[in-house]
């Protein structure tokens, strides 16, 4: 555990909580892609199957349970509790175009050809592109609420901090996971355009961020 890893995890947690609270307080999931949230729930489920097989630390186990719990709570709020506010017409990204290639890639390129390892690899690849339905939705409607941009910023920052964590671990521990690093790079790059807009248009009198 190093400072980048910890702040990355906390940034990830902050993103998840921000989104949950936003939906809960406003009683609405307008502008939020339910498809992205389903993908994140799938990501956590397939990655944290090792909760059943191995114990790493109390921190590890509790964070995994919190991430999974919040992911399903978010999906529940969008598709059940506040379903009437869900913007399904604008959430039109075809997720099979992500899940199928990512599944194929996980079977082809993995550390070990076993079910658990392939599912872990699948979750790493899927996470890197799971935000695309959300970004697609924002580009389609042309706007995002400020709180949604905070969510996206924290979510993007998390993987960027993980990249620094991997550089740290390579130098000090000799640890190198090319699958995680490659997917983490792709994931971070997808947020770069958004980061730029978040910083440059994050003015004081801003209510909404327009994306191209």
């Amino acid at each position: 555990m190093n400072v980048f890893r910890l702040t990355g995890d906390l940034s990830h947690l902050a993103a998840i909580i921000i989104l949950l609270l936003k939906i809960w307080k406003s009683r609405s999931c307008a502008g939020i892609s339910g498809k992205s949230q389903i993908l994140f729930a799938v990501v956590f489920t397939t990655r944290y199957l090792d909760l059943l097989t191995s114990f790493i630390s109390l921190y590890n186990t509790s964070m995994k349970l919190i991430y999974i719990g919040c992911a399903y709570a978010t999906v529940y709020l969008i598709y059940v509790k506040f379903r009437a506010t869900y913007d399904g017409n604008h959430d039109s990204f075809r997720v099979e175009f992500l899940v199928v290639p990512v599944g194929g890639l996980a079977v082809l390129i993995n550390h070990n050809f076993s079910l658990m390892e392939i599912l872990w690899t699948f979750s790493i690849y899927l996470e890197s592109v799971a935000i695309l339905p959300q970004l697609f939705m924002i580009s389609k409607t042309g706007e995002a609420e400020t709180i949604t941009t905070h969510y996206l910023f924290c979510l993007g920052l998390y993987r960027a901090l993980y990249l620094l964590n991997w550089i740290w671990r390579y130098y000090f521990e000799g640890f190198l996971d090319m699958i995680a690093i490659f997917a983490g790079l792709v994931q971070t790059v997808l947020y770069c355009d958004f980061f730029y807009l978040y910083v440059t248009k994050g003015g004081k009198d801003r209510k909404k961020v327009m994306l191209p």
């Binding site: 990830h12 790493i56 590890n60 964070m63 995994k64 550390h111 640890f175 996971d177 995680a180």
Partner: peptide, 10 residues
């Protein structure tokens, strides 16, 4: 541990 085998990350 072998490369990539230790899944202590989230």
């Amino acid at each position: 541990c072998p490369i990539g085998a230790k899944k202590d990350e989230l």
